[in-house]
């Protein structure tokens, strides 16, 4: 199964993006995340879709609802978001490896493609430039 990130269901893209933001510390445990209305109007996404993404993150224990206040990152939220992001990363790399295998590239060639991608995105060795992914 091949998936292009932009072809993923919209709620999945919203959930992935928020998870990445929590993993990156843009929203930290105990802090509120943007309201459904704010997200919906900013991204031009149906509020039901945003709600569905938030529901998923609540089920994963990354967000919690505080009545009358909104949604907050749980104490364990950052760690959980990190784990989930690692899974998204794995799926994305698996996709790349699959393209390589289909084109009959060797493991060494696939490894070197990864190294080149890393180099192209890091300004100083070991420090990646954060790139915004917009759904």
């Amino acid at each position: 199964m091949t998936t292009n990130p932009s072809n993923l269901p919209v709620f999945q893209q919203v959930a992935d993006q928020l998870r990445q933001k929590i993993a990156a510390g843009i929203f930290r445990p105990g802090e509120a995340v943007p309201s459904i209305r704010t997200q919906a109007t900013a991204l031009h996404i149906n509020p039901n879709t945003i709600k569905r993404a938030y529901d998923e993150l609540q089920m994963e224990g990354i967000l919690e609802h505080r009545p009358g206040l909104g949604l907050f990152v749980t104490a364990a939220g950052a760690v959980k978001a990190n784990t989930q992001t690692a899974q998204v990363l794995l799926a994305t790399f698996a996709n790349g490896v699959r393209i390589g295998i289909a084109a009959r590239l060797s493991k060494a060639e696939i490894d070197s493609a990864y190294a080149k991608a890393w180099e192209s995105l890091t300004d100083t060795p070991g420090r990646a430039i954060h790139q915004e992914i917009t759904p």
Binding site: V10, R37, A40, T41, L43, H44, I45, N46, P47
Partner: peptide, 25 residues
């Protein structure tokens, strides 16, 4: 979208911008 969030209106929208429709409808 703000008007959908606040008032729960029904919106029917014809459009050629399918990326917008995919996100909104």
């Amino acid at each position: 979208i703000g008007s959908v969030c606040d008032r729960g209106r029904t919106v029917m929208m014809s459009s050629h911008s399918l990326a917008d429709v995919q996100k909104m409808a």
